[in-house]
Design a binder for these strands. Structure first.
Lengths: 146, 146
DNA sequence: GTAACCCGTAAACCTCAGTTGATGGCCTTG
DNA sequence: CAAGGCCATCAACTGAGGTTTACGGGTTAC
């Protein structure tokens, strides 16, 4: 099991939380039976109450997309609720980076530079680096690690 | 099948798209074999190249969360990309831009420029524009619409 | 040439996701 | 009390998710 840390919260914990927080008429929790029946009725997807219980209690941990989607739909949460934790968030950073660039109105520069010869690009890169170093004192430059 | 509209794009189509758009060094696509091997190596999750191919070609359509998450992580997209169409479209556009920039090895320029004052950025933009105009004859400059 | 390799494709195969059936506890209602 | 329904829980089973093995085509190396 290499370095990548797994989800801090398991599917079981998240599902359990949904059961606790989303209740039929404000009273007691849904029963596994009721949820299974509702999913079959509303979505036409076969699922057994036993299996829902197994997922909730962590006895089964690796459902298929169909069942996970069905549960998410029933409880009215996006499927990503079950899946996107720390790991997926890291990935989202990469996409966020693009938004950051766009927000800094830098994409036009990038796009133009992309359409330019390699040697010119190198020269431009050098200029940018010089400007950046001028504007960023050494002290601040130290905290450049992700 | 009641009212809830299912995903317009299958997992197969989305996965195929990832293969097409996210490439190793800008050249040919990843092979199913390479992806399987990388997932095993980087994430320690067992997956066979044959199965990846089956998913990509739509012969298998209902993977478990473990495998879907592994694929999403490898390609650097949130798992929701495979499950939620709205988000998938958003990410697709961003991916295309990101790949364009990466292929031109221009991201470092852009990143540094984003971290620089507005006036400097303006100056840099001016330089880039000048270089670009130098390298792109007037004739070609006219057809700059897409 | 041919040997070695990587690749997509296919079918046979095996493991585990998911079901079925059963048990017993806790409520009601008669 | 017994009868009946709803429930969580368990063990045993089924079948689909996932793998293994193998074949043929394409490419590079000797």
């Amino acid at each position: 099991m290499p370095g990548h840390e797994r989800d801090a919260f398991s599917i079981a914990e998240k599902l359990d939380r949904l059961f606790q927080q989303i209740r039929p008429s404000g009273q007691a929790e849904f029963s596994s039976m009721a949820v299974a029946e509702a999913i079959r009725a509303q979505q036409g997807i076969s699922i057994s109450h036993t299996y829902i219980w197994q997922l909730r209690t962590g006895r089964r941990t690796n459902p298929t997309v169909q069942h996970l989607t069905a549960l998410a739909l029933f409880f009215g949460v996006p499927v990503a609720y079950f899946l996107d934790d720390a790991e997926a968030r890291k990935i989202n950073d990469q996409l966020e980076l693009l938004r950051t660039l766009r927000d800094a109105q830098v994409t036009e520069i990038a796009l133009r530079a992309a359409d330019v010869s390699a040697s010119s690009r190198e020269a431009i890169g050098e200029i940018v680096r010089k400007v950046w170093e001028l504007e960023n004192p050494a002290e601040r430059r130290r905290q450049q690690d992700d």
